[in-house]
């Protein structure tokens, strides 16, 4: 039951993009087409799940026993940066088609605050390993949901006559605001 609560709350109630404001840069940056949005989601889901597992192990078995939790920021960012590099190298060797699809998004992920944010939130909420993994996956799904919905709206937005000063980024933010308002409807279900 607890697991279900974690999943529902991460995807809908506290949506990582629309409610927690993590990963806004790719949300605005790569959301002009549904296709690229799906690619980005795949890359984020992959790295986010791995990063949450590894940072959990690092926190529980190295940082806490040695009581050097103040090193959290430095170690987490280094783990994430090297993980992205590693994933890139492995994918290139093991699955060239997948590398073709996700490759260009991988370098962007290092400075995607969603990855680091989810790792920090999992530690802050005192999740155990299973909960951390679920939290990582659920947040990746939430990220994908918001990104793909937003990309779909933006594709239609191109065909609409938007007032001149609002064109481009300002209207994107207004749309994101309305989307966020819609997601507020989920608050209270868990």
């Amino acid at each position: 039951m607890d697991y279900l609560v974690i999943i529902i709350s991460a995807i809908f109630v506290n949506n990582i993009v629309l409610n927690r404001f993590l990963g806004i840069c790719p949300f605005i940056g790569v959301s002009s087409k549904v296709e690229t949005a799906i690619g980005m989601t795949g890359a984020v889901a992959f790295v986010m799940t791995l990063a949450t597992i590894i940072t959990y192990l690092l926190q529980t078995y190295i940082l806490v026993p040695l009581s050097i939790t103040f090193m959290q920021t430095i170690t987490f960012i280094l783990i994430i940066a090297s993980l992205v590099q590693l994933v890139e190298i492995v994918l290139k060797k093991v699955s060239p088609p997948m590398y073709q699809a996700l490759g260009i998004f991988l370098p962007l992920i290092t400075t995607n605050c969603a990855i680091m944010g989810v790792a920090l939130l999992a530690v802050q909420n005192n999740y155990n390993l299973v909960e951390s993994v679920l939290f990582g996956i659920a947040n990746a799904i939430g990220f994908g949901l918001a990104l793909i919905l937003f990309a779909g709206i933006r594709e239609h937005l191109d065909l609409v006559d938007v007032p001149k000063p609002m064109r481009g980024v300002p209207i994107a933010f207004i749309v994101a605001g309305l989307l966020s308002l819609a997601f507020m409807g989920f608050s209270g279900i868990v």
């Binding site: 629309l18 409610n19 404001f21 000063p165 609002m166 980024v169 300002p170 209207i171 994107a172 933010f173 207004i174 994101a176 605001g177 309305l178 966020s180 308002l181 507020m184």
Partner: peptide
Amino acid sequence: APGAFLALGYLIMLAD
């Protein structure tokens, strides 16, 4: 949360 997006959207327009 929604207010953050809305307010920033309008402020970007004004700043431009």
